[in-house]
Design a protein around this nucleic acid. Structure first.
Length: 560
DNA sequence: GCCGTTTTCGGCCCGACTGTTTTCAGTCG
């Protein structure tokens, strides 16, 4: 866990424990502070009180934790309510107050205790609980135990396409779209939200229930299902509320709260049914109308995170985001000379299909022994093959390499070879267990190398499995400006590295971002879509993306 | 506990759904 995530988790726990004790309002304050910490850039905890929603009290506790490794007040709370509140509240329908009550009444401290109490029929005897609640807890336990990580966008997006098609085919459905974090294209997804219009809601929900694992809840306007390892929420709305419902269910929560506040400031009210003044509905049919009624530009879903987009849209200053069609090439591709399966011809064919003008073949270099990285002479042979293919291709094929940044910051390919190759992507693949200073130095050294053009997957993270080493992005960006180097946004859905927030800092610093797929097979070149949506989440325009430049612009930048 | 173009106290997003209630609390998003 990053330091921010670690502190945020403690603050969430603090909030839950307070709520379990029936404390009012404070839990909200701790959660807001936790959200703010989680969203903040690395290093922001040096001055916690500078963050939104962090005041003197919580700021002091953060400092206490960073200095001593614990927070006295939290330790006291944990003694008063010694329960695994994070695990217990993962059970559907169990929140902090329920967890607190079950601890006080039945000494339930963790999932095992909860299961035991439910199976023994002890929960139904507690005042305010019944047989149905006990049953729901038993049902929810299994899911809570196996649902751990959020789904990757790369898994959720194709699944949601399939789900959406089934929903659209269901009886009564006139219109359906995916909303929620999927529509915002977050790197990980909690559940699949669908907004739909149906002429027969009962028939629709019944048909969807047929292929779902089970039905969690079903009401007039809403139904939830378990689907493999995720949850599917159907939100059923009337045709004339489509726009306001889509805004509402797309979120994020923070964006919605900011929109509602803006409505209140204008003597209006915003909910999923529309923008209102008193009992008069002013807008609701399309998202564009809703934003217009709030005197704002339309906000693309990827920006709806309350990271300044509400203010920017009100001032008419939203960026003109990069689009999929703006991408003209892929500058980090592997072939079958090391660990990939693609061929030069195969990559070219796929690139044509994607409407590209160019691509670069950047095979692994020698130090990456595990995949049989290419020696200097083998890199030259591959370059010759790429040049030959270039002659007969409609595309511009760049020669290249994905070189390794060694422990001391040097590059594992000979100078003369690096000079000959047109695109040099430099990446860290070894000695990943570094402290921030060491990692930063290593990256900066690579940036300073005269032949390096792009730093590949800068943090080395793998979503849900490897955190990546910490580094000082500001220092790397400064070096990138000085030496004319781009950072990669690796579009592989397991990486998405740099991430959305880091893209924004690149954009602000004026460092070009290369949206590369790092494809090892032709099909993987399609990952570019995840990269583009992540770039959009980082407020990037086409001009900020290195591989949306024309061949001529790119050749000039590369100096070839 | 945090915040402020109704500022240093008095509010704190809001609606659906469920289960347990005879009017509402807790959870969720």
């Amino acid at each position: 866990m990053t330091e921010n995530a670690e502190v945020a988790a403690l603050l969430y726990e603090f909030a839950d424990l307070l709520e379990a004790q029936g404390v009012e309002y404070k839990p909200r304050a701790y959660r807001d502070a936790a959200d703010s910490v989680r969203e903040a850039p690395r290093g922001a905890l040096e001055d916690p009180e500078a963050l939104d929603d962090v005041g003197e009290a919580i700021g002091g506790k953060i400092e206490e934790y960073l200095e001593t490794g614990s927070i006295e007040e939290l330790e006291e709370l944990r003694e008063e309510i010694p329960v695994d509140i994070e695990a217990l509240t993962r059970v559907e329908g169990v929140g902090p107050k329920t967890a607190g009550k079950l601890y006080r009444e039945l000494d339930v401290r963790d999932l095992d205790d909860l299961e035991e109490a439910a199976e023994a029929g002890r929960i139904r005897k507690v005042k305010g609980f019944g047989a149905k609640t006990e049953e729901n807890i038993l049902d929810g336990l299994e899911f809570a135990r196996r649902s751990h990580d959020r789904m990757l966008l790369g898994d959720a997006a194709p699944l949601s396409e399939e789900v959406l098609q089934r929903v659209r085919d269901a009886e009564g459905v006139e219109r359906a779209e995916v909303a929620g974090s999927l529509r915002r294209r977050k790197e990980t997804i909690g559940d699949i939200d669908v907004v739909l219009v149906s002429s027969d809601r009962d028939a629709t929900t019944a048909e969807v229930a047929e292929y779902a694992e089970d039905v969690m809840q079903k009401g007039e306007s809403k139904a939830s299902y378990h689907l493999e390892d995720c949850q599917l929420d159907l939100n059923m709305v009337d045709e004339d509320e489509w726009g306001s419902a889509l805004v509402y269910f797309t979120g994020s929560m923070a964006h919605n709260v900011a929109l509602r506040q803006r409505a209140i400031d204008q003597d209006k009210k915003l909910n999923e049914y529309g923008v209102w003044r008193d009992d008069t509905r002013l807008a609701s049919e399309t998202e564009e109308e809703v934003y217009r009624e709030l005197d704002m530009e339309y906000v693309p879903p990827e920006l709806r995170e309350d990271r300044g987009e509400v203010e920017a849209a009100a001032d008419g200053e939203l960026p003109e985001l990069v689009e999929h069609g703006d991408v003209r090439g892929d500058l980090h591709l592997h072939v079958d000379r090391t660990d990939g399966s693609a061929t030069i011809d195969g990559l070219v064919e796929k690139a044509m299909e994607l409407g590209y003008s160019y691509l670069a073949v950047t095979e692994h270099s020698e130090a990456l022994g595990v995949v049989g990285g290419l020696s200097d002479s083998e890199l030259r042979e591959l370059a010759a093959d790429v040049e030959e293919a270039d002659e007969s291709s409609e595309l511009r094929l760049f020669t290249g390499v994905e070189a390794n940044i060694l422990k001391d910051g040097s590059i594992d390919v000979g100078e003369s070879v690096l000079e000959e190759l047109e695109v040099v992507v430099a990446s860290i693949h070894s000695n990943l267990g570094m402290e921030e200073d060491e990692a930063t130095e290593r990256l900066v050294s690579a940036v300073e190398h005269p032949e390096v053009d792009v730093i590949g997957h800068p943090s080395g993270r793998l979503l849900n499995s490897r955190e990546g080493y910490p580094y000082d992005l500001d220092r790397v960006l400064e070096a990138c400006i000085d030496y004319g180097v781009a950072l990669e946004l690796n579009a592989n859905p397991h990486r998405l590295d740099v991430d959305d927030r880091e893209v924004r800092r690149c954009v602000e610093a004026g460092v070009p971002v290369a949206v590369n797929t790092d494809a090892h097979a032709e099909m993987e070149m399609e990952y570019v879509g995840y990269g583009v949506s992540t770039a959009r989440r980082g407020w990037a325009e086409a001009s900020d993306i290195l591989n949306s430049w024309s061949v001529e612009e790119l050749e000039e930048w590369l100096g070839c």
